[in-house]
């Protein structure tokens, strides 16, 4: 992304002709308009990368959630979104008894889960079968805007794997904007500052190199 990235606001005309479109744009009378405030990206398909907004879960997203409640058949999970998610007892790897649900995942636990399905009325179901199931214990939880997550992960995971390597921490990034960092206290602080840096400077060029420099300078 170059430094002079074009900012668009809702209703801005992007193209007089219909194009292949992605997110953040709409077509009206054959013309393409932006519908969110963000950065215009015209690489392969026209889209607008939002600068703000709430996380809306989508199928197959990996998220970090906090268990808020347990009812007779599922765990209620807060996923930093206007919508609460549920993890049904049947999605737990292995058979467990209803009465023993709170022995496996307790209220307040941090879990890594995958969005199994988002229903018509935004009923969000989670699963933990596919990825290696994990309750995150210890470590530090940082909440960032979900709009910065793709930048934090980088192309093919380049940014996040670099931060992990340079700061010697284990880091987990959820699509919903929760970042979990674990390691030695001073390393965690370093990684956290690197994450903050990526969030702040998400839309500038040469960011990966600057983050490397920053991490090396502060090691």
């Amino acid at each position: 992304m170059d430094k002079l990235a074009k900012i668009v606001i809702p209703g801005d005309l992007i193209s007089e002709k219909p194009l292949k479109i992605g997110e953040g744009v709409f077509i009206e009378d054959g013309k393409v308009y932006a519908n969110v405030y963000g950065i215009l990206d015209q690489k392969d398909r026209v889209r607008v990368i939002p600068l703000a907004g709430k996380y809306i879960p989508r199928r197959d997203d990996t998220v970090i959630g906090v268990v808020t409640e347990i009812d007779f058949s599922s765990w209620h999970v807060d996923i930093l979104s206007p919508y609460e998610a549920r993890l049904h007892i049947g999605e737990y790897p292995g058979r467990i008894d209803q009465s023993e649900m709170s022995c496996y995942i307790r209220v307040g636990d941090l879990i890594v889960a995958t969005v199994l399905d988002v229903g018509w009325t935004m009923k969000v179901d989670l699963t933990i079968r596919e990825n290696q199931f994990k309750i995150l214990r210890g470590g530090k939880l940082v909440e960032i805007s979900h709009t910065r997550v793709p930048r934090l992960i980088g192309r093919g995971g380049s940014m996040i794997s670099m931060i992990k390597r340079e700061s010697a921490c284990s880091i987990f990034v959820g699509q919903n904007g929760r970042v979990w960092i674990q390691g030695k206290p001073e390393n965690v602080r370093l990684a956290e500052r690197a994450v903050e840096m990526v969030v702040r400077e998400a839309h500038t060029s040469g960011l990966t190199n600057r983050v490397v420099e920053f991490l090396n300078a502060n090691k």
Binding site: F26, G38, A52
Partner: peptide, 9 residues
């Protein structure tokens, strides 16, 4: 717009 809410204009 600043809140990132999608709008037609």
């Amino acid at each position: 717009a600043d809140a990132g809410i999608p709008m037609k204009g």
